[in-house]
Nucleic acid binder design. Sequence first.
DNA 1: CTTCTTGCAAATAGTTTGCATATAG
DNA 2: CTATATGCAAACTATTTGCAAGAAG
Lengths: 145, 145
Amino acid sequence: MSNMKYSRQRKAIIDFLATRTDHPTADIVYINMRKEFPKISLGTVYRNLSLLVEIGEAIKVPCNDEAEHFDGCTLKHYHFQCNRCGAVLDLHISDMDSLQDLNKIANADFDGNIEGNSIFFYGKCRNCVKELEKKSKVKNEDQKI
Amino acid sequence: MSNMKYSRQRKAIIDFLATRTDHPTADIVYINMRKEFPKISLGTVYRNLSLLVEIGEAIKVPCNDEAEHFDGCTLKHYHFQCNRCGAVLDLHISDMDSLQDLNKIANADFDGNIEGNSIFFYGKCRNCVKELEKKSKVKNEDQKI
DNA sequence: CTTCTTGCAAATAGTTTGCATATAG
DNA sequence: CTATATGCAAACTATTTGCAAGAAG
């Protein structure tokens, strides 16, 4: 990994991920890169994203979507996906203590070695909660996302 | 969903899922169905699997694999994936109390509505732990999975 | 110069779908 | 009979890869 050369495309992808909190898919990254590099290819985007994951500058967010989501923030945190609009959001839990022993608890009944876990929350995001409130008040209005 | 007709293929898929604890992918189901129905198509397998998921007779196991894994056991339990051999196993946690308040804890700092979570554990399964022990004793032996 | 990176296009893996035929009710 | 299910093949989506040309060190 030390044999990595600088590339403007990679730099742009890193910068882009840093500005986003919504964990874009490779395709979203691609679309945005094309503004600056009209001829960039999806292959380049994928190659760089997995390279960044390999060297720890990004993580793949495990969520139950068809497509992989990428996160430029590698600090430990949890993720949430809205099952109405599909947005993937960060979740910062202040009371982490409750989660500390999760692996230990799970290992108690498991014949093997548990090394980690990934927790994924789902529900309705703030916007969708609002939308739904509106809809229940004005029932004859069409659904707008 | 009440307009569902009986089919021998669907029955066989349900029975097959019930006998397996390792959460097969659609492809594995397909391969096994071909023993009884040599001309069954992957399309039929996929159609039935998603139908079963819809009516709650099976669940999609959320794991970070390329392919979807299906589980015939719809009772609440957790999953584990071995990051050496890729096996997906069930995890039965007896001390569930610790997990009860997870949504509540997460919701405390979240602007929206958390409805559920999925926890996925990873590490080394029993077999791989054994294999690795063997390897560290007999270092000149090749890796056998 | 040598190695890494890119753009392009073709390949791949998993899954879905249109359609004519077969089967259940 | 009528509606649902099947087999088959083609379509589709996300991702990966081979290769010749371009940029970095």
